[in-house]
Nucleic acid binder design. Structure first.
Length: 596
RNA sequence: GCUGGAAUAGCUCAGCUGGUAGAGCAACGGUCUUGUAAACCGUAGGUCCUCAGUUCGAUUCUGAGUUUCAGCUCCA
């Protein structure tokens, strides 16, 4: 049991609380910083977060190597085992105190509070901080902590504000827990797609090509091709019509779509508006192009729902600091699609989209790792969005009721909507726990009007369809990144770029091995023959490093018996099997993996 | 875009305060023709990210740029 003190000054006893311990650790960090770097360092905020804590400081200039020193000071403070006390002040008194302390950020926070707010302060030895608590009564109770990084962070998360210095750390009750967390971080590095993907020769980047423009090497390209064929085939089965639309268009198109006003910064623009007669832009989204396919002829209510899909390459001029491996790039290819539907079809079509997504996530093995986010507009940031409040309230309420009907378990996020409508985002976490959107489904009541997309209804009147913007498997680069980390490079059979590697014991078996290879290639399997080196142990090791699911070993016994020996990833051997039997085995395994 | 790191052989890295570079693995050539995790001998491989500046002399110091990493902000 641990003793705590809350913001009423009450002392109570409870189990070790990780959140409070981490919050207390952030105060110890701040105390250490003040001791080492002096009172010129201004305190901003220092909360506990998911996997640790941080504290933001102004005027602090620390480097990675200084962290050890700071950590030692923190340990010293804990050893002193100061007792925490708490007192409260009214707003006026609190402002007076923080003004005396010259804590400008605390002052700013207090000034924004209500007049009758009671503000609590926690003190430990020579250190006092405004805080709502609770805290550990004795600093010794915090347990074991470690500082990780010192980086920059904007005050209040706004890029217009000053950049402060943020120190991240974590804390656990037991030393073993801390050590296992550190170990976990180390192990995560080996799964990091940006490291593993390069090591496995799935992709690379080249200085001369530029940021966010990775090259998919043969193995990575093979995986993406497998995914794309799978997605296009499945979508055709579900009634989607394929389009192939241009990679760029005149600015006129984007002016109608609203991209020119709302998304220009994110586009690669070819030409100079001031000088050139015609200005082009690479497409950042496929929507307006597929809308033109819709408008190719007059549509009837009987034509709807109309489902378009395209394996679509997009270009977005991301800020230079944003690029990261395959997760965030400037050119990417997405399983894009737009559905033009009648309002009475909307729910069923969204359900259909979600069923498709669900199937894909299941096949990829990501079903357990995703979460749903209902992304709404921010009424306080109108300039970012098309349409008025009424439009947004309507489209959001429609999407919300559909999601509730479908019993989707989601969190809401303000200000994450697309500029033309609310979204259902499907989120996945990377190996370090950082969340990214991999799939998005959007409901759009706006763009059909802008593009004059209409259909003739039963009663002969002209109507606008609702547009669903959706991806089904997401963007191939980002999804590949997630898969690399999910499987630590050990891809399932249907997806792996080399499904089997044929290894010969000596050069005498190469002719037979070629026969085996051709049979497997004809049966549509991806195989390689390694006959360069004669050392079988070495070859097996190579195949293991490449995470090849099956090794086919061929020596003189196999040639004599017209069979092969197979070794799977677990190191188990199957002997005296024929090539045809092996092909059947592979086929049934792939079928199973595709849930068919 | 912002803050702070980093860039040396194909890969992982070493190289003290300025005197143009090394190791292990990989590659290539040869020997061995081998039944399950690195056989032996040999060879080659570098614009020390780029461009300027300081200097008799720069991988090393300074500046600008490029790429890259962590975080922030932005985003699929």
């Amino acid at each position: 049991m641990v003793k705590y003190i809350n913001n009423k000054g009450e002392i109570y006893e409870a189990e070790y609380d990780l959140q409070i311990a981490r919050h207390t650790s952030s105060h110890i960090l701040a105390q250490a910083i003040k001791r080492i770097y002096g009172s010129d360092i201004k305190l901003a905020i220092g909360p506990a977060i998911d996997n640790g804590f941080y504290y933001d400081f102004d005027g602090l200039n620390v480097k990675q190597e200084d962290l050890e020193n700071i950590e030692n000071e923190m340990k010293k403070i804990v050893k002193e085992n100061q007792k925490t006390s708490c007192y409260t002040l009214n707003k006026k008194e609190a402002i007076k105190l923080v003004t005396e302390m010259d804590e400008i950020y605390k002052k700013e926070m207090i000034e924004e509070m209500k007049e009758d707010e009671i503000i609590s302060f926690f003190a430990q030895g020579d250190f006092t901080d405004m805080c709502t608590g609770p805290h550990m009564l004795y600093l010794k109770s915090v347990g074991h902590f470690k500082l990780f990084t010192a980086t920059g962070a904007y005050w209040r998360g706004n890029e217009k504000n000053k950049m402060l210095t943020r120190i991240y750390g974590t804390c656990f009750e037991k030393k073993e827990e801390l050590e296992s967390e550190i170990l976990k971080k180390e192990e995560a590095k080996d799964k990091d797609h940006n490291k593993l993907g390069r090591e496995m020769e799935l992709f690379t980047t080249v200085d001369m090509i530029g940021q966010g423009l990775p090259i998919l090497l043969p193995k990575g390209a093979t995986i993406v091709q497998t995914l794309q064929r799978f997605v296009e085939d499945e979508e055709r089965k579900r009634g989607y019509l394929l389009t192939k639309t241009p990679f760029m268009a005149k600015s006129d198109l984007y002016k109608v779509s609203g991209h020119w006003d709302h998304y220009k910064e994110g586009m690669f623009i070819l030409g100079d508006e001031a000088k050139d007669k015609e200005v082009f832009a690479l497409r950042p989204m496929t929507c307006p192009f597929q809308f033109m396919a819709y408008k190719n002829r007059q549509r009837s209510y009987r034509d709807l729902p109309l489902r378009y899909n395209e394996t679509s390459t997009l270009f977005r001029n991301e800020d230079s600091g944003e690029m990261h491996g395959l997760i965030r790039v400037r050119q990417f290819t997405i399983s894009e699609g737009h559905l033009a539907v009648r309002l009475d079809q909307l729910e069923k079509e969204i359900a259909g989209v979600l069923d498709l997504i669900n199937y894909f996530m299941d096949v990829l093995g990501l079903k357990e790792d995703i979460s749903f986010r209902f992304s709404k507009w921010d009424p306080n940031d109108r300039a970012k969005y098309l349409g008025n409040e009424e439009d947004w309230e309507y489209s959001q309420s429609v999407l919300k009721s559909i999601l509730d009907d479908l019993k989707i378990n989601y969190v809401e996020a303000i200000g994450e909507a697309a500029f033309y409508g609310p979204k259902l985002d499907i989120q996945a976490k990377n190996v370090y726990g950082k969340e990214d959107t991999i799939i998005t489904v959007q409901v759009d009541f706006q763009l059909a009007h802008r593009f004059e997309m209409t259909y003739i209804d039963k009663d002969g009147s002209k109507k606008y369809p609702v547009v669903i913007h959706r991806t089904s498997i997401g963007c191939y680069e980002r999804t590949l990144a997630m898969l690399i980390e999910k499987y630590a490079g050990t891809f399932p059979l249907w997806l792996v770029p080399i499904q089997a590697k044929i290894l010969t014991i000596s050069e005498n078996e190469i002719e037979y091995a070629e026969e085996v290879k051709n049979k497997l290639l004809q049966a549509d399997f991806k195989v390689e023959l390694d006959s360069e080196d004669n050392k079988i142990g070495y070859k097996i090791r190579e195949a293991q490093l490449e995470k090849v699911p099956y090794m086919i070993v061929i020596g003189k016994n196999e040639v004599e018996n017209n069979t092969i020996t197979i070794r799977n990833r677990n190191g188990e051997d199957i002997k005296d099997i024929t090539v045809d039997e092996f092909i059947n085995m592979l086929n049934s395994q792939v079928k199973k993996e595709l849930l068919k």
